[in-house]
Design a protein around this nucleic acid. Structure first.
Length: 480
RNA sequence: CGGGGCGUGGCUCAGUUUGGCUAGAGCGCUUGGUUUGGGACCAAGAGGCCGGAGGUUCAAAUCCUCUCGCCCCGACCA
């Protein structure tokens, strides 16, 4: 049944952009503020971020990383040390020019990313190969003065994590880059249930100052790609710019090799778009602040008894480690609550009323397909985790099918253009490796290379844009 | 930053073309009562000087100028 229980929400299929904004605001994930381009992460939205954060933090700690904190400000002279880096970020840096009434001698950038303040510190700390590697992660906020903003997807200030590591050898640094890349993919697919394409960026699309950037790219329902995370290999670019040197075991002074990597609260936007439907959000259980909402249905005489049982069951679930919310408000009807919690994407609803009291059972309703199931009280603690697990898997499967169906393989430019103009998606096409061809495609279709498909054999294929021998197959898409 | 759209109680909007009594509606909110298994009903209330600043006029939500913000489509980016 596609019946609409909530009025005044645009259909996802009809007006996707409007749907997105409405859902984010009505589900109370975020709201606009009086500051241009800046949003409030409301408790429910921040709760999702905390769960993502915990899931990633566990993985980072397990692989030897530690958290630290670095300053919000970066002196201009530091930011300009790595030429490509500053060139890439300069257009969107916010500057502090005054302290109180006094003009600063040197203006301070509000970090758009922290390489330029982390690296100078690493230079102080690294003396010997024994000091390496340094594996530090930062959970912080950054500011980028974007022209156009969208809730979660692009805001002036946003929350993220940025890891910065330095290593003794190129191999170590590359291994780290790819290790994190793997962790990100695991996080995004297994916690957020967002399937991604993975691969290196083209030279043109890589991070400012990186030698290689590996990206996770998801496909949104409107046919546009969403970059969900990146892991960068810097080679010695930054260690030379910031003079991070160590004495190696062979008695020689060498520059270290570095990496950086990040995922942001943009992931929450990806969650909303990937899983939501016309009734609102659908949160994968692993990142749902509320996994089960208990809605008691009470009539006059049995009211106390129903509520008591609902409280008991809610507590039992909570004690079993399931994030549970009891909604016993009497100013709303059950039907109202059903719609409300569906809008907010709670994966599983537990209904209990007088009938269930008699039968010693509850009714469980899944958010993704609205399937109802009666479960006896004694079986509840076993059954709920099963359903949550199944729902998590079902969301990933559904999203995978969508991703698969969004990839079109073509060697013909006319077809490329017409698909990009109509249904969009990822276009997998041969590419000669030249930036000029990326430019041409971008100018004519607005699509860019999202990542290079390493596993595809390009021998014998002709570049989609210029017809010269292809060097690789690449995924092209319009992006957020 | 270019093109387009929009700012009127918390929300969605009407009213602006053609200036004119006390600025309206629905939803939401408050109180009381009846309800409660898919957004209940009745009654009584509270709440806005119309994004902001100038100007024109006897009179401005309405006309003019400037400005701020939001949304969409582009270019730039997580």
């Amino acid at each position: 049944m596609v019946e609409e229980f909530v009025t005044a929400i645009p259909k996802k299929s009809v007006d996707f952009a409007d749907w997105y904004v409405q859902i984010v605001r009505r589900a109370e994930l975020a709201d606009y503020t009086p500051i241009k381009g800046c949003m409030v992460y409301r408790p429910y939205g921040y709760g999702i971020w905390e769960l993502i954060k915990d899931a990633l933090d566990r993985r980072l700690k397990a692989t030897g990383h530690q958290n630290a904190y670095f300053p919000l400000f970066i002196p201009e002279s530091f930011l300009t040390k790595e030429a490509e880096h500053v060139q890439g970020f300069a257009p969107e840096v916010a500057w502090v020019t005054h302290g109180g009434d006094e003009e600063l001698e040197e203006r301070l950038a509000i970090r758009p990313t922290s390489e330029a303040i982390v690296m100078p510190m690493y230079a102080k700390w690294v003396r010997s190969y024994r000091d390496l590697p340094i594996l530090i992660n930062l959970w912080n906020n950054v500011v980028r003065w974007e022209k156009v903003t969208r809730l979660f997807l692009r805001t002036t200030e946003f929350l993220w994590q940025e890891g910065h590591t330095v290593h003794r050898t190129a191999e170590d640094a590359m291994e780290e880059t790819l290790r994190i890349f793997g962790i990100y993919q695991d996080l995004v697919e297994n916690e957020l249930a967002i399937p991604v394409l993975v691969g290196p960026k083209s030279a043109q699309e890589k991070f400012a100052g990186a030698q290689a950037t590996y990206a996770l790219e998801a496909m949104m329902p409107d046919g546009r790609a969403l970059q969900c995370g990146t892991s960068h290999y810097f080679g010695q670019n930054f260690s030379q710019a910031f003079d991070i040197k160590f004495l190696d075991s062979d008695g020689e002074q060498k520059h270290a090799w570095s990496t950086s990597w990040g995922v942001s609260t943009r992931l929450i936007g990806g969650l909303v778009m990937t899983h939501g439907d016309d009734s609102g959000l659908i949160l994968p259980p692993r990142v749902a602040p509320i996994q089960v909402v208990v809605v008691p249905i009470f009539y006059g005489s049995e009211m106390a008894e129903v509520i008591a049982k609902a409280e008991e069951l809610a507590k039992a679930l909570e004690d079993a480690g399931i994030r549970t919310k009891l909604d016993a408000r009497d100013e709303y009807t059950p039907g109202w609550k059903f719609s409300e919690w569906e809008l907010r994407g709670v994966p599983l609803r537990l209904e209990i009323g007088p009938r269930d009291l008699q039968a010693q059972q509850v009714v469980l309703v899944r958010r993704d397909n609205r399937k109802k199931e009666k479960v006896g009280w004694d079986n509840l603690l076993a059954r709920v985790p099963e359903i949550l697990k199944d729902l998590q898997a079902a969301l990933l499967t559904r999203a995978r099918e969508f991703l698969r169906a969004s990839i079109y393989r073509t060697k013909e430019y006319g077809e490329f253009v017409s698909i990009m103009e109509s249904r969009r998606g990822f276009l997998l096409s041969p590419w000669c490796g030249e930036a000029s061809c990326e430019d041409k495609i971008k100018a004519e279709t607005t699509a860019t290379i999202r990542c290079i498909a390493e596993q595809e054999d390009a021998v014998g294929a002709a570049c989609i844009a210029c017809g010269h021998p292809a060097q690789a197959w690449a995924y092209f898409a319009k992006s957020y």
